[in-house]
């Protein structure tokens, strides 16, 4: 199959866009244990996709399968336009993988690790040295380049790991829990690096158990629990899935507060703060109706804020094994 042929799909906004990763009915079990129970994924090129889930949900297994490390039991899988089962070598040429456990050679130096990658990508000596030097610079590893990797800190190892992944300029990158075990500063550094990748037009498939990370980085998020995708959408769409969202009106004038409280139904009053909470999903329509209501009774609030539940609420609601809310809308294909 020529590599230039990529499946295309129509996005919600009508633009024709290529698909970087697609999975239909992905299944995998280890012996009796069903790890992935029919997963469907559709990730447009140039986007960041986060697979979010608790430990043991099957995130790593999904990455291992899509990155050709292990075989799926069933499912139609395409990465970079290549069939994962039929042409794994072509998939490998298109991807870069940074796994959960650091995939660096601790016995040699950071620079030697980079040159090893350059050799394996069949770059010529000069090009290899150039790419290695450039990436070591970009990942702030120049000072440590000549030291054995076994002396690196966790954050440095992760950076080197990702730098090694980038040697072949992959267009699709898998990051399996890229910040697990990192301190807050290293974590933010890693986020900045990942954002940098995206601005280069690379597709990123990310797994994480941190909600803020998915919120921070991903265009779309799928929540994986017990081998099934229980919700999928943008961070905002997911947040609207769970109750707890409200609009808060704050007043400085007690009379205005009183009349607003009388006019609106279903409000929670906070007499001391002179504020009212109205349950709402934060959608435009609901906001307009609240504003219309306030206008009609001639009250003006001093401050209006929309509170959506954060992803933590979503995560716990979706992965606690309780009722799973309906998906807001089928994601546009």
């Amino acid at each position: 199959m020529p590599s230039s042929v990529m499946p295309t799909s129509r996005q919600g906004d009508g633009h024709l866009s290529t698909t970087a990763i697609s999975a239909v009915g992905l299944r995998k079990s280890y012996g009796e244990k069903l790890v992935l129970d029919g997963i469907d994924l559709h990730i447009p090129a140039g986007s960041v996709f986060a697979l979010l889930g608790p430990n043991g949900a099957g995130k790593t297994t999904a990455v291992k399968i899509l990155s050709t490390l292990i075989a799926a039991d069933a499912g139609e899988l395409h990465v970079g336009g290549h069939d994962v089962a039929a042409d794994p070598q072509a998939v490998r040429a298109a991807i870069g993988v940074t796994g959960q456990f650091s995939a660096v050679d601790g016995l040699i130096t950071g620079e030697e690790n980079m040159l090893l990658m350059a050799d394996l990508h069949h770059l010529c000596k000069r090009e290899g040295r150039r790419v290695a030097a450039e990436l070591l610079e970009r990942f702030d590893l120049v000072d440590a380049a000549k030291k054995p990797v076994s002396t690196y800190s966790g954050g440095m190892k992760r950076r080197l790991d990702l730098a090694m992944t980038l040697v072949g300029s992959p267009r699709i990158i898998f990051l399996d829990e890229p910040t697990t075990g990192l301190d807050p500063r290293s974590r933010h550094n890693m986020w900045a690096i990942i954002r940098g990748l995206v601005s280069d037009g690379v597709t990123v498939f990310l797994t994480t158990q941190y909600l803020d990370e998915a919120d921070e980085l991903a265009d779309r998020i799928a929540v994986l629990n017990d081998g099934k995708i229980v919700a999928e959408g943008t961070a905002e769409e997911l947040k609207r899935l769970v109750p707890g969202g409200h609009v808060r009106l704050r007043f400085t004038d007690p009379t205005a507060y009183q009349s607003a409280a009388d006019a609106l139904r279903e409000v929670t009053r906070d007499d001391q703060a002179l504020s009212l909470s109205i349950p709402s999903d934060g959608s435009q329509r609901e906001l307009r109706s609240i504003l219309d209501w306030l206008d009609s009774v001639g009250v003006e609030a001093d401050e209006l804020t929309v509170h959506t539940p954060d992803l933590d609420d979503v995560f716990f609601a979706l992965t606690s094994g309780g009722n799973v809310p309906h998906q807001p809308q089928k994601d546009a294909r």
Binding site: L69, V97, G99, A103, L120, M164
Partner: peptide, 11 residues
């Protein structure tokens, strides 16, 4: 170690 997984996912 993790390195072998990297090699296996490279062309």
């Amino acid at each position: 170690e993790g390195l072998i997984a990297r090699f296996r996912t490279m062309a």
